[in-house]
Design a binder for these strands. Structure first.
Lengths: 343, 343
DNA sequence: AAAAATCACGAAAACCTTTTCTTAAATTAA
DNA sequence: TTAATTTAAGAAAAGGTTTTCGTGATTTTT
């Protein structure tokens, strides 16, 4: 609700609206001295162009949309941080939408975005998204679209991800080398490629080291935290308790800590664990948590960079960019080999 | 960049643009059957109204702006979560801006917002904001403005905060009752009222219990993490080391943990600590961290609620709402009394 | 049956910028 | 000195929606 508009500004200057507009946009049609006069008056009258009129006319919003499952999540908070940094640099605004891991929300958010409110979209899928119809329709509408981390497998689109398979493999191998024989895997969702890739890495590591892949040791978790806790409890109280856990996502590892604390189970003595995590306090936990840490901030930066390249040049679609960054495995106490009995 | 507009829709229906618009807005001027026809065709043609044209005409953006210091912060992430929930309920979009604790960014963000891009603003000040000129000008422009947590003291405006003074008092008293005699206070910023209120509570608790307020024990921290670490190190390595720390903000408590870990200082035996924090893993730290936990999500919900009341009724300004929620003190190991020597 | 009211819709202005197209004046070229 | 070009500015259309006002046709009132 800025009060002064071009009309008033023009009146105050004794110029036409069009000349003022051109002066402010630094058009060659306007003389240097007039430009100066206009800019000065604009500042004095505190003129702010109406963004809607401008967007309507230019068909550009200078806004990007970011669609993520949740914000109270260390990974996504860091990614947003990176995205915001790039957007600010480009003079763009950032509209954030949370799906709360609910596909219905994701679909309706995409429908909103179809309205043309944004010049581009960054997105990370929600755990229960199976059909990609809403995503392809967004893409087909001509709005540049880049996925990060949780990307769809069934469609051709630019993505920024991490080396999930390799990370899953290395994490599991690390547990094996620390002496684990029965390693469980806590999966985020069987629909998400990142979860499956991490799990495939896990399974291949088991196979490589001659360990059996047991279905009972692969726990498909849900979006209900309470229910996940009960799944984890069941896993750890079962007749054949695992001696290692590979958690594909931070939240589940934290749940494991709570359960072991409640059960009096000792990490790493009775149970070792390693998890994907961006927890800043991983090294301060009791015991410190071994993590595979994704470069979350950089993922945000790269995804935004990719998006802006698409927004700026119209020439997208010919080459589909797939960027893969590396995660780092940080060994800490929670997966430490116990050297009590000599062999 | 939705393709079909009202004009095309009208043509396809053999109606005028105005009738179609009215039908879609469910005007009483349009017959029920025509409305039905219009809605069906709109769906079939995948019509999405152009948000800029609509905003331009109605002088409403259905968007709120949220200005916060940082997003990779448990408190703010939770608050945003609450804000988003309310906004979504109201059918509003959320534009997020990060100041990175930098006043210059805050000022320029506010200038952008003055353009009328949003119907209301939720804000939490950055640590070095002293002058409130940019804030009053935003307020005077007629855009509803609500502050949460970090609120300005010098201006009259609606706010949502917590019982910071009392929480500071109780936290300090708790340390005293656990046996601390020399309690340090880690302050976020001497410009922010929340930091000062917490510190005042700290000082009054010391006085009540006959303890001296020592300037050397009040550490004004900065936005430079490395420098803060050195301040904390200096504090803990000084000739008269404190036996308790009251941290006004989570990040500083984490730094203390790192320093004590490095120095081999034992919490709570040699040093007790309590901190404002929304860390979900507080109870899993080594040792578990005593916290004053703010209802961050609720703060977001309440602040957004307040803002929407202002947006919906034009009648604001007569009564200034000041909401104060309660924080909860959770005692954990880090501030536990040590019962070694009988008295 | 005439007057009044209601109904269902259309025309057109308004919101504010941006941009294309004109145009008058000033400058350069012939 | 006239013709051609450049310069600096204005008029007006366009962008898509909403809303006010107007207008025939139908229904209700007296």
């Amino acid at each position: 609700m800025s009060n002064t508009n071009l009309k008033q500004l023009a009146a105050a200057l004794g110029l036409s609206i069009s000349s003022v507009s051109k002066a402010l946009r630094d058009s060659y049609e306007i003389s240097a001295e007039t430009k100066k006069r206009v800019v000065e008056m604009a500042n004095r009258m505190n003129y702010q162009p109406n963004p809607f009129a401008s967007s309507l006319r230019r068909k550009k919003s200078a806004t990007i949309g970011v669609v993520i499952p949740e914000i109270a999540n260390n990974f996504f908070a860091l990614a947003i941080d990176g995205i915001q940094m790039v957007a600010e640099q480009k003079g763009f605004h950032v509209l954030t939408y949370l799906t709360h891991e609910n596909n219905t929300n994701e679909v309706s958010t995409v429908r909103h975005l179809l309205g043309g409110r944004v010049d581009g979209v960054l997105m990370s899928l929600c755990r229960d998204t199976q059909s990609v119809d809403h995503l392809t329709s967004l893409q087909e509408s001509g709005i540049p679209l880049v996925f990060f981390d949780r990307v769809p497998e069934q469609m051709s689109c630019p993505t920024v991800t991490t080396d999930d398979y390799e990370s899953g493999f290395r994490a599991t191998e690390h547990l094996i080398q620390s002496g684990c024989k029965r390693i469980a895997c806590l999966s985020l969702s069987h629909y998400l490629s990142i979860s499956n890739k991490r799990m495939n890495g896990y399974m291949d590591a088991l196979k490589k080291h001659g360990l059996l892949v047991e279905n009972g040791l692969i726990v498909q978790c849900t979006n209900d935290n309470e229910y996940n806790l009960s799944l984890i409890k069941a896993l750890l109280k079962g007749r054949k308790r695992p001696d290692g856990i590979f958690s594909t996502v931070e939240k589940l590892a934290i749940s494991v800590y709570y359960v072991t604390q409640e059960m009096g189970l000792q990490i790493p003595k009775q149970l070792k664990i390693i998890s994907f995590s961006n927890l800043r306090t991983a090294s301060l936990l009791n015991p410190s948590l071994s993590t595979i840490t994704q470069p979350a901030f950089e993922i945000g930066v790269e995804a935004a960079g990719l998006l802006f390249r698409m927004i700026e040049k119209k020439t997208f679609g010919n080459r589909i960019d797939k960027l893969e960054l590396k995660s780092t495995l940080i060994e800490r106490k929670s997966s430490e080999r116990i050297l009590i009995n000599k062999k």
